[in-house]
Design a binder for these strands. Structure first.
Lengths: 241, 241
DNA sequence: AACGCGAGGTGTACGGCGTACACCTTCGAC
DNA sequence: GTCGAAGGTGTACGCCGTACACCTCGCGTT
């Protein structure tokens, strides 16, 4: 038995929560490369295989760690309405702060092969901010893609790997689950079409989304340039104006 | 000896180029996880350790693979001048196409602990496009940060890990190397300050850069929203206007 | 033609990884 | 008090990157 000495009484039992918290702490100290099932088990005074009673495998461990980090992001206001822009800005910055506390987190995020429930919850909250401000479903969809690089720290389509289910029953079940827990995500997914005639779940044109975000940046830069923007207040404190 | 049979004559000698090309091909087929020194050696009909005569270790192999992929991006126009926005747009999209041909590439990129020469060449070219259009060094610097998520596919500061050298001689040597090969990168690095009084190599405020790019997206979205933008041409074909 | 020397390919081995599988221990419900 | 299952253990396997000593060519020199 590893770590036989425990000052008073028995070593506390392992739980999924203890495993995840210790994994986060270990990754904070040693980085993602320093996190192995063996080093983690050592820290918990336990044999490596004991972890597998609480997480299916290392991928599931990373899923759980991501979940733990995202739980640190404070909840957004329910219905910001007209203040949607400020609310969205605050939420992105809140997310950034949480991810900055755990430098390994964005690398863990991007290796998730599909969006986890915690990530869907996070997206749902952001989508509701924009929608509550009256931004159209279509524009919300594109803005969300553009914001993706700010929220998650990377650009590639989350969960783009692996073919979606083709069985109609499976699709229906997935849609039902979405409708119950992530209605804004579902609406956004259905708003991907670029033409009102072909809108219905037409899938998402990645090239369009990419160019949309790119043009926001370039057009914004051009406008600032034309106005002789300077960082010390030529136009405004930020990029606004 | 692995793969003893070779139709005519001897097996051709290994070169760094053959190693890199085969590594790229293997990663294209099997993904980055399917690329190991052993599987790569197998494909080349060689024993794993033979690779180490041509690449220092696996990290250097990945450096070389990134270099190979970036070499596929067509060169930009020399001095686009007033057409800087179109040139920048084209170059980002060219880069995207190259990275899309190698889905593993953006993940390889983001694990580089510091910008490689090939990445610096790439940045240099983009910076020159903006500067040739008369965009100020400061605005170029911030726009480059904002574009980073489009160019590289991720947001985090490239090469942010590890403390910079503190020895004055080392700094001077690095600056001299920069000035020779990447003058625009050097200029941009020196343009990070946000106040003319404290500009000289004051380092780069990551939070400012993040907020700058975030506000470009949010302000642009707000403007489109106010104009009742629709994706099928309400305002313009892209996000422009 | 003979030689030798260095670049390039080989073979063996080590320590680390994730985890399958069989086993044992412990504890709560009855 | 007993029993069953949940939780922790031990062993083992097949991967991984790569250090180190060795062998084998092919070429420049003589």
């Amino acid at each position: 038995m590893p770590e036989p000495e425990h000052p008073g009484g028995r070593r506390p039992r392992l739980t999924r929560e203890r495993v995840l918290d210790e994994a986060v702490a270990l990754a904070d100290e040693a980085g993602l490369d320093g996190l192995s099932m063996r080093t983690l088990a050592d820290r918990l005074g336990v044999v490596p295989m004991a972890l597998y009673k609480h997480v299916r495998d290392k991928e599931a461990l990373l899923d759980g760690m991501v979940e733990t980090v995202l739980a640190e992001v404070p909840p957004p206001p329910e219905e910001p309405g007209a203040a949607w822009k400020a609310a969205a800005r605050a939420r992105v910055l809140d997310t950034r702060r949480a991810l900055q506390r755990h430098p390994w987190a964005w690398r863990a995020l991007e290796t998730r092969p599909a969006p986890t429930p915690a990530m869907l919850d996070h997206m749902e909250a952001m989508l509701r901010i924009l929608r509550s401000g009256g931004v159209s479903p279509q524009l919300t969809h594109h803005a969300m893609h553009a914001l993706g690089s700010r929220i998650w720290g990377f650009t590639q389509e989350v969960g783009a790997s692996g073919p979606p289910p083709t069985d109609p029953d499976e699709i229906a079940a997935a849609m039902a689950a979405m409708a119950a827990r992530w209605p804004a995500v579902l609406e956004s997914a259905m708003s991907a079409g670029h033409d009102p005639d072909t809108t219905v779940g037409a899938g998402c044109d990645d090239d369009f989304e990419f160019a949309f975000a790119l043009d926001l940046i370039l057009d914004g830069t051009e406008r600032l340039d034309e106005r002789g923007w300077t960082p010390w207040g030529g136009v405004s404190a930020g990029a606004g104006g």
